Simulated scan of single mutants.
Amino acid sequence: MRHSDYSIRTATPTDLPDARAVMLDTVYRDFGTGYVPRWHGDIIDLAGAYLTPERHTLLVAVDEGDGEVVATGALDSRGPAHPPNPAHVAERFPSGVTAQLRRVYVRPEHRRRGLARRLVEELLAFAAADGGYRAVYLHTDPAVTGAEPFWRSLAKVVHDEREDVGGGQGIVHFDVPLPVPARVG
């Protein structure tokens, strides 16, 4: 079977229904939670969460063979909130100066082809070009197949809730190195 070629680009309003489908399929299939408004409200209002705010973005990976959106990746300027996240994590990554990576999801049949890594590289370039971000943060649910090893290959663990008394939410929090923007001139 031939691997498809993919393009990665900033989402347009016409991409939003397909991007939303990738995200909702992921929260139902991989997370087992289904849609939870307090956690997933951005999925319903993708334009308001990622397209309208200047310092936010939503990227899509498109299968060039059939034009299907097969992966997503987003970034916003909201740090992790306490609660539910540990206080020291929220303090380390304040809103406004923290770029949070969100919704880096790849449809199962398109995984292991470098799409998530390419999406993250583009999101990090966006954060660096912004000039106002001092840190990049993300958290992941280690129950999602492949998620924890992927993020450990790109980022440093700052807190693993599984080590907390009672296991916390079971979430792993990461600090992603912010690339230094290339100087022009």
Rank of each mutant, 00 (worst) to 15 (best):
H56R: 12
V27S: 06
V36F: 04
A90D: 02
A147R: 08
A155Y: 03
R111D: 07
V136Q: 10
A74H: 03
V22Y: 06
V120D: 04
T52H: 13
A71W: 10
M1W: 03
P108V: 01
Q169V: 00
Y35A: 01
G166K: 03
G65T: 10
I171P: 00
A143G: 14
P86G: 13
P53W: 13
H159L: 12
R111V: 10
L138G: 02
H110G: 05
V172F: 07
R2C: 00
G146R: 09
L119D: 04
P17M: 08
I43D: 10
E121C: 00
V60H: 04
F126E: 04
V36S: 02
V97K: 05
L16M: 09
P108M: 02
D42S: 14
Y137K: 11
R78E: 12
D18K: 05
G167Q: 08
I44F: 02
E163P: 00
A47D: 14
G185E: 10
I43L: 14
H159M: 01
R134G: 09
F93M: 12
H110N: 10
D76E: 05
P84N: 05
Y137C: 07
L124V: 06
P53F: 12
R112F: 06
R111K: 12
L101M: 12
T140N: 07
E121T: 14
R20Q: 15
D141V: 07
G65K: 00
L123R: 05
A49I: 08
G131K: 05
L115A: 08
Y6F: 15
V172Q: 03
A129F: 02
T145V: 13
P86M: 13
P83R: 04
L123H: 08
E109F: 00
T72G: 05
Y105M: 13
R103A: 08
G34S: 11
Y137Q: 07
P53A: 12
G41S: 15
A11Q: 02
H40Y: 07
G48A: 08
